[in-house]
Nucleic acid binder design. Structure first.
Lengths: 117, 117
DNA sequence: ATATTGTTTCAAATATAATTGAAACATCAT
DNA sequence: ATGATGTTTCAATTATATTTGAAACAATAT
């Protein structure tokens, strides 16, 4: 298993593409991979995905999000921070309340899920 | 904090939408949420995302994927199983080799990431 | 049959993420 | 200033995901 053998059925096209090096060159760079990963991770949890969808229907203060999900404040705060850090939602202080909104990216992601998945 | 108060700036639209119950009705059901979560989780890891991209450029046997990523077989096998379980890739035995391919869903996801994110 | 190469599976160890409850912070009303 | 409500932060715990290395499995060649 030292030198990697290549199965017949793909050898030709594989060589044409410049082998491993040729393929690796076409891949997104690490920063972009990290960016995509963070968005994917944010929507990989059920409650976070539901909250993102809900905010696209209607922006809400944390107290309403908490009421909707029946999660504790501190728990929800943690999940909101992950959605926020990934750029899918943002918040605005309104008096005593913090209201969360989807970002353009957040809406785009939700829209595409609706259409494409 | 018993009865949830609603901030002025959203109360009206919130009520119009039927409040929490009205919003919850519009959310995807649990099965669909789970489906989306599993795809998102699959691409939330750097090596899995890179492998998915790479397979869209060129289907490969595990030995080539291992060579490309410099991951151990058992480790890569674990990551491949997550991509496979989420429906993004599939495999076909070719003689002694197992070759992995992107599914239609896998290609669609990669394509959308390229365009939309 | 036996050996060789390619791959997966398993259980144990490690690392990362999520939950919990208390404390802190912010804004508003008194 | 003081107290009340809404929210976040923190450290400790618990749960989940990933890594590791050995063993098992599968296909081919001898």
């Amino acid at each position: 298993m030292e030198e990697t053998e290549i199965p017949d059925s793909i050898r030709c096209e594989f060589e044409e593409k410049g082998g491993i090096d040729g393929i690796v060159e076409l891949l997104p760079d690490d920063q972009r991979i990290g960016y995509i990963n963070s968005i994917a991770r944010a929507i990989s949890d059920p409650v976070r995905l539901r909250v993102l969808f809900a905010l696209c229907i209607q922006p809400m203060c944390v107290c309403l999000i908490v009421a909707m999900t029946e999660y504790a404040y501190s728990k929800m705060s943690y999940h909101l921070s992950i959605l926020k850090d990934s750029g899918l939602i943002y918040s605005k202080q309104e008096g005593n309340y913090l209201i969360y909104y989807p970002t353009d990216l957040g809406r785009k992601v939700v829209e595409w899920i609706g259409k494409g998945l």
